[in-house]
Structure formats: C-alpha cells, structure tokens
C-alpha cells in the first residue's frame, strides 16, 4: 500500500508528474480556446454592431445559443459531429473505418466557440463604452476607417475588455474540465484516471481541485495586473485630481 505522499509524488507509481502535465494541458486548451474565441467573438461583435439586420440577427442567434445551451452538449456536438465530418472526409479520400477528431482540437474548438459567445458580449460592451465624441473627433481629423479602427477603436476596446476577458478566461478554464469526456488527458481526466486506478477518489479529486484553484487564482492575478497596467491613464487621473 502506497502512502498518499508516494501516490502524489514524482517517483514510480506516483501521479505527480502526470497531474502537472494535465494542468499544463488544461492551460493549453484554455489558451487555445481564448484565441479561437477572440477571433469568433470579434467577428460576432462586429456583426451585432454592424447595424445590418441580417448580420445582427446571426450574431444574436450565435450568442443566445452558445451561452444558453449546456457546455457539455456543445462539446458532444463538436467532438462527435467533428468526428463524423472527418470520417466522411476520410471515406472520400479512401480511408476505411472511423476517424476521430483529435480530442485536443475538438476540446479547444468547443470551449473556444463557447468562449467566443461570451467574448462577443465583452467586445460589444467595450466598443459601446468608447465615448462617441472620441470617434467623432477621429472622423473630424480625417482618419480613414482603417486608421480609426487601429488607432482609436482597438486600443480602447482592448483596455475596456480586459476585466471581462478575465471573467471569460476563468469560465473557459472551468469549462475545459468538461473536455475530459473526450478522453483528453487534461487535469480533470488525469485526476479521474488516477482516482479510478488507485481507488483513492477523495485524495485525487481534492488534489485536482486544488490544482484548479491554483490555476484560477494565479490567472486572476495576471488579469488584475493587466487591468492595472491598462488603466494607468484612468488611475493616474485619480491621483492627479486628489
């Protein structure tokens, strides 16, 4: 019988290294999802802000569906649906049998699609928070559409979006645990396998949970720091006024 310390250690029969690897994969899934979601979210936010009824409606459906349907269901959709698509493609190219979508890809894509729905709302809110007068001043000085976007809109959207993005990151970090259903050996799945094969359920779920707590509180710090950095102009003003 191994002691708890040995079970969690890095020696033979210890799960320490695998758990840490799992935590890294969790971070990688979440980071990829954030990037995928940033692209989708920016696109959907632009559609919702476009002022064109059809595009706005498509954007609205996207955010309603992917924020309103259980994450697990969306992961099934991407994993099984994606695998069917890949299998069909494989058959067309002459491969036999069932081909799976790589679980990392499926997981990052699914969490990314969900993240995109939340990010779209963050970007939309951030855009609407730009004082309209500042956009008008950019027009008045003769800035082209591109230049306005690059010099006035994007820097401000990014600044206003940071707190919201921090929340989305935390959400995605926790959503990524559901990717374990595809068999990807991220932190949740590794804890599950360790718990099952050692029969030490309580120990491994507690340790897995603690690792998640470390991930969420560390990333919380990172985002708070970024927020302070980006808010320099604002907080400097408070000191200046005082």
């Amino acid at each position: 019988m191994m002691t708890s310390l040995q079970l969690l250690g890095f020696g033979s029969g210890g799960w320490g290294a695998l758990l840490l690897l799992g935590a890294l994969i969790t971070l990688a899934v979440t980071a990829s999802a954030l990037a995928i979601g940033a692209v989708l979210g920016a696109l959907v936010a632009a559609m919702k802000l476009s002022g064109r009824p059809l595009r706005a409606a498509v954007g609205h459906v996207y955010t309603t569906v992917f924020r309103g349907v259980p994450e697990l269901l969306i992961i099934y959709l991407i994993y099984f649906g994606g695998s069917s698509a890949v299998t069909a493609l494989g058959h067309a190219l002459g491969f036999e049998g069932f081909l799976g979508l790589p679980s990392f890809l499926a997981g990052a894509l699914a969490v990314g699609i969900i993240s995109g729905a939340y990010q779209a709302e963050v970007y939309r809110g951030a855009y609407l928070a730009i004082p309209p007068g500042e956009l008008e001043a950019a027009l008045a000085i003769g800035m082209s559409r591109r230049l306005r976007l690059r010099r006035i809109v994007l820097p401000q959207v990014i600044r206003f979006a940071i707190p919201g993005l921090g929340n989305v990151w935390q959400l995605s970090l926790k959503d990524s645990a559901l990717v374990s259903v595809t068999g990807l050996a991220e932190l949740m799945r590794t804890s599950q396998v360790a718990a099952g094969s050692t029969r030490q359920y309580f120990l491994f779920y507690i340790v897995g949970g603690c690792l998640y707590l470390i991930l969420t509180s560390l990333s919380d710090r990172v985002f708070k720091g970024a927020e302070r950095q980006a808010d320099r102009s604002q907080s400097a003003a408070m000191i200046g006024r005082g």
Partner: peptide, 26 residues
Amino acid sequence: SQKQVDHIRSELGMVFQSFNLWSHMT
C-alpha cells in the same frame, strides 16, 4: 469619395463642445 471626405476633414479643424480628446492617449 470617402477619400475626399477624409481629405476635406483633415483640412478643417473641428473643436467640440465636449472636447472629445482621446482618453487613452496623453
């Protein structure tokens, strides 16, 4: 022509009631 519009605007200075300075720049 949007290009002409941008050009004309760059030749006319506009001062707004609410200043409209870009808050993210010094």
